[in-house]
């Protein structure tokens, strides 16, 4: 039960959505863009989110695209994770998405919702960071396409009134060798102790993480250490020295335990991609 009231708006175009946001804001409301809605409903119930107007973006055609256009995979922010899994245009993204929540929940959870959410795991962003994807964002200044590295720094750095429309990924990245390991405290469903996603491009490992810090990340310093011509364990030990901070230390696992699990997970990832 959502413990407060809100108005519900279902724009059918990007322009209408942006206008709605501005109009509602001018009326003194706190509008919020809404895709799958699972996180908004969950956090509302816990009084961790408040809005008095939701703008459902799922009827906007651009948000429902799943297509290859001009040598790029284009994924709309309103496409559900199971739709992406079933179409399987980007196997690493399929693998990553398929480990978010559970199958039924993923019928609702959208790509945009997972990436833009408050719950900090945001695992669907990992393959996009590795593939240097571009994000298409709408706001009062129009529609802009930017590098995901510019916009996603720990979380999506969206300005008030902006929303994610699409993610575009060069086709050349879609079939690169990949590895993905999600390790949980227990069971096959739930938040990660650590999630590691990796792509191998031009002989170099690209690695992104969730569950290690209170934000997903890809680190140049970590990748440089992992790609050294040294024994695997030495590379991993040096890489771990360059992790961003803080290391998560919560009910899912202590910081020390997460680092222990991460070390072994990285070994498995490297072994899988380098065949050592």
């Amino acid at each position: 039960m959502v413990p407060f009231d809100f108005t519900y708006h279902q724009p059918s175009s990007i322009h209408e959505a942006i206008q709605l946001f501005q109009t509602l804001q001018q009326q003194g409301k706190k509008p919020m863009y809404y895709a799958g809605g699972t996180e908004i409903i969950t956090l509302s119930r816990l009084h961790l989110v408040f809005t008095d107007a939701v703008i459902d973006i799922k009827q906007i055609p651009e948000c429902q695209v799943l297509d290859i256009q001009q040598q790029q995979l284009v994924l709309g922010a309103g496409v559900s994770l199971t739709t992406i899994e079933e179409a399987n245009p980007f196997p690493l993204l399929t693998k990553t998405a398929s480990e978010v929540a559970d199958r039924t929940a993923r019928n609702q959870i959208t790509l945009g919702g997972n990436i833009c959410g408050q719950i900090f795991y945001r695992e669907a962003v990992l393959p996009l960071l590795l593939a240097d994807s571009e994000v298409v964002i709408a706001g009062k200044d129009g529609v802009q396409q930017r590098s995901i590295h510019q916009v996603f720094q720990q979380h999506m750095q969206l300005q008030p009134g902006e929303f994610l429309i699409q993610v575009k990924t060069e086709q050349t990245y879609l079939s690169l060798p990949y590895a993905h390991i999600k390790r949980r405290k227990q069971g096959e469903v739930g938040y990660p102790l650590v999630t590691v996603a990796a792509l191998k491009k031009d002989g170099q490992l690209r690695v992104a993480f969730s569950g290690v810090c209170p934000f997903p990340f890809r680190s140049q310093a970590v990748e440089e250490r992992l790609n050294q011509q040294l024994p695997v364990n030495t590379r991993i030990d040096e890489a771990l020295q360059h992790l961003p901070r803080p290391i998560l230390d919560d009910i899912e696992g202590s910081a020390q335990y997460r680092l222990f699990v991460l070390k072994h997970t990285l070994f498995d990832i490297i072994t899988e991609l380098e065949g050592e």
């Binding site: 519900y8 809605g37 409903i41 969950t42 459902d56 039924t104 929940a105 609702q108």
Partner: peptide, 13 residues
């Protein structure tokens, strides 16, 4: 035809 957790979806949707 697809399963959805009805506690996580607004009726208006």
């Amino acid at each position: 035809g697809g399963p959805i957790k009805s506690c996580m979806m607004l009726a208006i949707e």
